[in-house]
């Protein structure tokens, strides 16, 4: 298991290669990368991600451990950034490795659903006109956990 909380960007290709070569016995690798969206008419200039350092690593490790146990994964990886990001920047990625693809896909979705509403990150959008808004959690984010 690898869990990284970092300000620096990451190289999806290099991370995926390393993860794949380390996942012995796996027949399926699924990766997901989250990217800062371009807002309508380029309204957003910066996304600031705040987190709770003492809790973040622990929360992510708990979520990843649950995924590994439930889907008998060969390995799981979570990288999540914080700090100032621009549209097009990578925010986070997850990777899962299992014998068959169904487990790897499901576990990756589980990780994403839990990261959305159980990992202590908060996003703030700063617009061209200088105004700033905290991104609100969606009702659907909490509902998404019910299927697990």
């Amino acid at each position: 298991m690898r869990v990284e909380v970092q300000e620096a960007p990451f190289d999806v290709g290099a991370v995926t290669s390393e993860f794949t070569s380390g996942a012995k016995g796996a027949g399926a690798i699924v990766t997901f990368t989250g990217v800062v969206r371009e807002a309508d008419a380029g309204a957003m200039t910066v996304m600031e991600i705040e987190h709770y350092p003492a809790m973040t690593q622990k929360a992510l490790e708990q979520i990843a451990t649950q995924a590994i146990e439930r889907w008998s994964l060969a390995d799981a990886l979570v990288i999540h950034r914080f700090g100032r990001l621009s549209p097009g920047d990578q925010i986070m990625m997850v990777a899962t490795a299992s014998r068959h693809r169904k487990d790897a896909f499901e576990a990756a979705e589980f990780l994403m659903d839990y990261l959305k509403s159980r990992a202590p990150f908060w996003k703030k959008e700063i617009l061209n006109d200088g105004s700033a808004d905290w991104v609100a959690a969606k009702d659907g984010d909490e509902k998404a956990l019910e299927r697990w």
């Binding site: 003492a54 809790m55 509403s117 159980r118 202590p120 905290w134 959690a137 984010d141």
Partner: peptide
């Protein structure tokens, strides 16, 4: 340690 915050928006 007690922490108060709005619903989390990770991912």
């Amino acid at each position: 340690e007690v922490a108060f915050f709005p619903p989390m928006t990770g991912g």
